[in-house]
Design a protein around this nucleic acid. Sequence first.
DNA 1: AAATAATGTGTTTATTTTACACATTAAATT
DNA 2: AATTTAATGTGTAAAATAAACACATTATTT
Lengths: 246, 246
Amino acid sequence: MLAEEKAKQLKNIKTLQVIQSEVENTNRIALSVDCIIFGFDEAKLKVLLIRSDLKKYSSKWSLLGDLVFPNEDLDAAAYRILKQRTGLSDVYLEQVSTFGTVDRHPAGRVVTVAYCSLINVQHHKLNILDNELHWHDVKSVTDLAFDHQQIFDTCLQQLQKRVREHPLGFNLLPKKFSLRDLQNLYEAILDIKLDRRNFRKKFFSMDFLIDLNEMEQEVSHRPGKLYKFDYEKYGKRKKKFVGIDF
Amino acid sequence: MLAEEKAKQLKNIKTLQVIQSEVENTNRIALSVDCIIFGFDEAKLKVLLIRSDLKKYSSKWSLLGDLVFPNEDLDAAAYRILKQRTGLSDVYLEQVSTFGTVDRHPAGRVVTVAYCSLINVQHHKLNILDNELHWHDVKSVTDLAFDHQQIFDTCLQQLQKRVREHPLGFNLLPKKFSLRDLQNLYEAILDIKLDRRNFRKKFFSMDFLIDLNEMEQEVSHRPGKLYKFDYEKYGKRKKKFVGIDF
DNA sequence: AAATAATGTGTTTATTTTACACATTAAATT
DNA sequence: AATTTAATGTGTAAAATAAACACATTATTT
């Protein structure tokens, strides 16, 4: 071995050729995406789950996932997989975390990247041709397939954190909503009770609610006013927006 | 094709065999880890960079990274790679984000997971056998190799966010530090000026500082008291700890 | 001995958060 | 039709927190 080669090895210096060889041959791993889709219905936080693909695990529910193609951007794979499995296409997916223990998947070494989204259950029609696809109460989600419980827990925690920092929750509500709807949402996500009067004050002071001058329909008891979220105003103030404390 | 097979295809149902085949053959991708190691020295926030492995990119600095082995946990790979490249072994690495555009690496398709750490520059001896390994002022980091600038920016933003939520900064300081050191650190990380009196009040009220009854040595002008961080107390209160507002 | 440049401490004000009560409205009940 | 019911809608006082700000103290340097 040439002295130069030896020095390179010592220093972990690799040529592009060496790296290319490693990339192409020895060190490849299957990569998947799992989508955690949150919804809100009947005052409860929901998550979209399917029966596991695999017969062995068919008694368990799992997240929406599939392998990333080698010629496909990671983000693009997330959107493709979500579309394939649910028909959903006009939703925003956000990367949450990557899970990579060696034995996490029964089919071999699969590292998975979790993506999370918040959607409006009413406005998005699901394509239920796929394996049993169901909304589940977040509170009743236990014992998912593989390591999906851990992935789900991580995403729920992240959601709880994020929703205190930015008013993301609106993505889960219909275009028109009452303040009661909004409070139910936050209480469901954070799993806490909030004071109705202070909650209103806080959201009015944020000044992201547009009064529609309409009332709720078909509710028993006094109907509340309907509002919509001012996405434009939020977009402008997003950068310097600090947070929501409850 | 049997009707059953067709139905399966329609529904995207795969058998374990099909998935195993995909995992083993068609869909594998190289996976790497990049380590973003922050330090603090001379009242400045620093980051550890090396010259790019690749000659083509040797004029640019890059993050500490390498490929994950197929039989290696993702987290373990991060620790191994950091150890190999710097000699550092007793540091905590935290996953930040995964970067996966198709063309991000010149050697082919490589998806990379970024890991971040905060270390004490004085207490950790670096193994500089590797490619030129240097601490760089965070403020002067521009134009890193590949997409490393984007990765670095993401990690710095995350650090700025996290340091407002938890008193992580202590990992960057020596065991004994003055309140001026601590304030310099926060000002360097957040790139803002803080009021000295209010800063002290805030940290004393958090009650994580242990007065060592020692004074700074070898400083010009009046020396300040030295403190250490009460990791034990922080560990106990960590869960319900809300945040640090400046 | 005086000047310097930092440390160390406290108060006042403004802002934000929390706790809490009552009048109003429309539907449901009698 | 009158009453009950169960929600909406509003305001205020107290407490906690954050922001603005000034001066005495100490060790070093001149």
